[in-house]
Design a protein around this nucleic acid. Structure first.
Length: 289
RNA sequence: GGAGGCUUAGCGAAGCGGCCAAACGCAGCUGACUGUAAAUCAGUUCCUUCGGGUUCGGUGGUUCGAAUCCACCAGCCUCCA
């Protein structure tokens, strides 16, 4: 059985995961996009997990130079789970990236290879035109994707161009079934309290040396890595480049973190069959038996 | 003490007599989500029993009609003393 622990950042998912791992002697699989990157430590809150016995799989194992994606995560997860399932009656999966969980646990199928659309040939199209073009290729997909969401429109076009199949055809072959036995557990603290904790956590990150971490990473790799999309990193980089003051950067990080938490809540609420608990302790009591 | 300017929804800011419950931006709230997901995108934000009801510093006035014009009061700002 895979125990999937979701919820907003700062809710205590990780603490719960470790408590359960101890109680069950179970392995933990990380499902957090940015915690997969090595060297992004303080800003991605990896600290508690670094401790040896509970260090999760799919965690802290990819160079920041790489461009991760759902498909890569899914592939690694599927491979890993094959080796873990026979050996462990209980496996814990924790993280904040709901899509990664969903794509791994359900029968999502991605194109076999990374599609590198040369989007440049559509530069002349505005969003509405691009969307209209998609409608001529894959009406169904175009109806589901908002025309302003250029990234997704582009992707749908790219799928067709490189696989010969439309995005909606591809998705139709999937049944949306769960591939492994899994239970979904969510932690959803009271909003106001959570936001307070998140604000505090940002201050702590800076005390722990986030600024130095970012500086050294930028020195090593430059400032354009995909991994620097992470909250805490992009804002700090903006500060280092003189675009904002440090105070502004910190405010921005606090704000983005809270917005992110909200998006996570929405995702888990509507995209996965969570059973919710107010605190990690409550969840632990309910599950440990 | 004298001269002038300003006051609009949570904040910033348009509006300068009817088309104004009031553009736009920010922030907030809600939501979408199948290869960037800590990303990308959308909707929504005075109250409402959805008929309507109360707003544009305050009070009073002009007008068929006022956020828009006038008077007085209050607060803020600039310049001169």
């Amino acid at each position: 059985m895979i125990y999937v622990i979701g919820g907003p950042t700062g809710s205590g998912k990780t603490t719960l995961a470790i408590a359960l791992a101890k109680a069950w002697n179970a392995p933990i699989i990380n499902a957090d996009a940015f915690q997969m990157y090595q060297e992004l430590n303080i800003g991605t809150n990896k600290e508690i997990l670094m401790m040896r016995p509970f260090k999760p799989f799919l965690f802290d194992e990819v160079s920041p130079l790489e461009n991760l994606s759902v498909a890569i995560y899914q592939q690694r997860f599927r491979k890993l789970i094959q080796t873990l399932l026979p050996k462990h009656p209980r496996i814990i999966m924790v993280g904040g990236t709901g899509l990664y969980m969903k794509a791994s646990l359900y029968d999502f199928e991605f194109a076999p290879q990374q599609i590198n659309p040369d989007s440049s040939k559509f530069d002349a199209f505005d969003n509405a035109q691009l969307h209209a073009y998609l409608a001529t290729l894959d009406l169904e997909a175009s109806q589901k994707i908002h025309h302003q969401n250029r990234r997704r429109v582009m992707r749908a076009i790219a799928i067709l161009e490189s696989t010969g199949k439309t995005k909606s055809e591809q998705e139709k072959t999937q049944l949306k079934t769960l591939l492994y036995p899994a239970t979904f557990v969510g932690i959803l603290p009271q909003r106001e309290w959570l936001y307070e904790q998140l604000d505090k956590r940002v201050d702590v990150m800076f005390k722990q040396g986030l600024l130095e971490e970012v500086k050294s990473l930028v020195g090593k790799y430059g400032d354009t890595l995909l991994a620097f999309q992470a909250i805490g990193y992009k804002e700090t980089i903006a500060y280092l480049n003189g675009k904002t003051t440090l105070g502004e950067a910190i405010q921005k990080i606090k704000q983005s973190t809270k917005r992110y938490a909200k998006r996570q809540i929405t995702y888990f609420r509507h995209q996965l069959p969570m059973k919710w608990y107010r605190t990690w302790e409550e969840a632990f009591e309910a599950l440990k038996a």
